[in-house]
């Protein structure tokens, strides 16, 4: 039995629902069992999440209490994750594309302005700043293993346009949504920022389930949530399995070393 506590923003919902489905599923005898607690960081009870002076912000004591309340095996963070959608979905005055350094041969959209990847990286970091600061505070608040989930891939454009709610609201114009390839690149770049941050702060970074990424780099239909940017419980269940695998693998490595 693995006992964990998870904290996060909106993407935690799919993970929590998937984890509950996993718990309730008729699992084979050898499958690991889990017991999780899921705390939504937008819950007023835990806000502000970070307290104290800007140069030394700490986790809200109520969140620290949650961390200490039970002998958890590990902590799962689902911080942020929609920043790539901020740039990929909202209307841009000057449509842009960029060369993704991890896949520099991907096509560039004809006629779009080429923006340095470094600039987009900085803009994403600007929007990710609170999430990164929150991750850092959780890492500082516990000795337990901490892992951060990679945000789910972007939903295909046809799905976004079918559900113009949340981020995009009714103002979304068909012509203004970025091409899927650019949205894919933004997601990869955001993921790279999270990955590098995690490496720096000793946080494990769990990639999105392989089977939940379609051949265009979008969220596979099986994982589509009920809006334009989120995944569903089935996606969350696949994540749960990967979380178990990551933790168990790390434990095995620890024992063997």
């Amino acid at each position: 039995m693995y006992r964990f506590i998870a904290f996060g923003h909106s993407h935690i919902v799919a993970f929590a629902k998937g984890a509950y489905e996993y718990q309730a599923a008729d699992l084979p005898a050898e499958a690991a069992r889990v017991e999780g607690r899921f705390l939504y960081l937008y819950d007023p009870a835990y806000n502000p999440v970070l307290q104290g002076p800007p140069e030394a912000r700490e986790l809200n004591p109520k969140l620290r209490e949650q961390l200490a309340e039970l002998p958890w095996h590990f902590v799962v963070l689902v911080c942020g994750g929609n920043e790539h959608n901020v740039l990929g979905i909202v209307r841009n005055k000057r449509p842009f594309d960029f060369v993704l350094s991890s896949a520099p041969d991907l096509p560039l959209h004809p006629g779009y302005e080429l923006v340095p990847e470094a600039l987009i990286r900085e803009v994403l970091k600007h929007y990710m700043a609170d999430s990164l600061e929150t991750m850092r505070a959780f890492r500082a608040a516990t000795e337990l293993p901490v892992m951060q989930l990679e945000p789910p891939p972007p939903l295909p454009n046809r799905r976004v346009l079918a559900y113009p709610r949340e981020f995009v609201r009714a103002s979304l114009l068909r012509a203004k949504i970025a091409p899927e390839l650019i949205r894919y690149k933004l997601w990869r770049l955001e993921s790279d920022i999270y990955a590098k941050f995690c490496k720096e702060f000793d946080i494990d970074y769990l990639p999105a389930p392989f089977d939940m990424v379609d051949r265009n780099g979008m969220l596979a239909e099986a994982g589509w949530g009920s809006d334009a940017t989120h995944a569903n419980p089935r996606y969350g269940m696949e994540v749960m399995k990967d979380v178990i695998e990551l933790y168990a693998g790390a434990q095995e490595a620890r024992v063997s070393s």
Binding site: V99, S101, P104, D105, L108, L114, P116, E117, A118, L119
Partner: peptide
Amino acid sequence: SATRIIDPFRPNIQPDGFSSMREYRTDREA
């Protein structure tokens, strides 16, 4: 390196240079 390309004529134009040769050449042309 493959992800750190420096323009000799504006070596400090952005932190860590350009992230790929393709980006560098396209940006320089623009």
